[in-house]
């Protein structure tokens, strides 16, 4: 059973990893946190779930729709909460994006109601058994899609000109600007990609949770915050490792202790990490920390 629980934990971790990637991209681009990303994930997931159950479209199409919705919402968030907000005030984009999150949740409640929505299972009946280990269809989808998206993101950032531009802006926006990189457009692109990841994470979490509710947005943001702090702010690989770690820790705590300890352990872990190693577990780069 321990092995099964470890796998459960890793699966939980992969959904955390996507949302952590999403946050970390924005931290890289702007040294700011987009607090509406949790709601972005939620609205994408709700729409995806509705498309699947009401319009009867396949998971692949619904997933692509969720990505697109995430991208659009994140783009709008950028324009509302970052583009025209003075960079001098650190609290301004935080409050502004929290405001956008509030609007998203309320709009969703208005339009589709406060009920949770079922996410129909994909590959129903598929069940792979390897010795004591059992993986069902949904879990297979989550694992492969999350892995694929992470690999694609790495490829994009490291192999394409736009990816290079994003990394450039993330390292030093002024220098990138001087070198002729269209900084504002690159930042918008970063937001859009981060929204796509949030959308993916939303629907995949919905798949593992079997439902999506309009009230999970803020919750998602908090989980993501814990993950990226543990992994080191802006550190993409650190975030992924921390996400898997938290997934496993949460799962094992729930399985062998109790759910109350789950949050307690994660918060204590993050607290101790911050005090002992403010740069996060997996990074030696304190540059970003100083700026955020």
């Amino acid at each position: 059973m321990l092995i099964q629980q470890l796998v459960n934990g890793l699966l939980l971790g992969t959904t955390f990893a996507l949302i952590a990637l999403s946050f970390n991209l924005v931290v890289g681009a702007l040294d700011r946190l987009n607090f509406a990303l949790g709601e972005t994930a939620m609205v994408s997931a709700i729409c995806g779930a509705l498309f699947m159950s009401q319009l009867d479209i396949t998971f692949v199409l619904a997933f692509l729709a969720a990505l697109a919705i995430g991208a659009v919402v994140a783009g709008i968030t950028f324009l509302l909460s970052f583009r025209f907000v003075s960079a001098e005030y650190h609290t301004a984009p935080i409050l502004s994006s929290l405001g956008v999150g509030l609007v998203i949740t309320s709009l969703v409640t208005r339009v589709v109601g406060s009920d949770q929505r079922r996410v129909p299972s994909v590959l129903e009946g598929v069940r792979i058994e390897i010795g004591p280990l059992r993986i069902v269809g949904d879990q297979l989808i989550i694992l492969s899609v999350a892995a694929l998206m992470t690999v694609l993101l790495y490829g994009f950032l490291n192999r394409t000109p736009w990816g290079t531009a994003i990394r450039g802006v993330s390292d030093d926006p002024d220098m990138a600007g001087l070198l002729g990189v269209p900084v504002q457009r690159v930042i918008l692109l970063t937001f859009v990609i981060s929204g796509t990841l949030a959308g993916a994470s939303g629907l995949l979490t919905g798949l593992s949770f079997h439902t999506v509710s309009p009230f999970t947005g803020f919750e998602t943001t908090l989980t993501a915050l814990m993950v990226i702090v543990l992994g080191g702010l802006g550190n993409i690989t650190g975030g992924v490792v921390a996400a898997l770690m938290i997934g496993v820790i949460e799962t094992l705590t729930v399985a062998y202790l109790s759910a109350t300890y789950r949050d307690l352990i994660v918060f204590l872990l993050v607290g101790i990490t911050l005090v002992a190693r403010p740069q996060g577990l997996f990074t030696r780069n304190t540059g970003v920390v100083g700026r955020v």
């Binding site: 629980q5 459960n8 934990g9 699966l11 939980l12 949770f209 399985a255 759910a259 109350t260 949050d263």
Partner: peptide
Amino acid sequence: TFASGDSSFASQVTS
């Protein structure tokens, strides 16, 4: 046990 904020019940059901 679980607590609100869980995003998967895989662990509990496995147990």
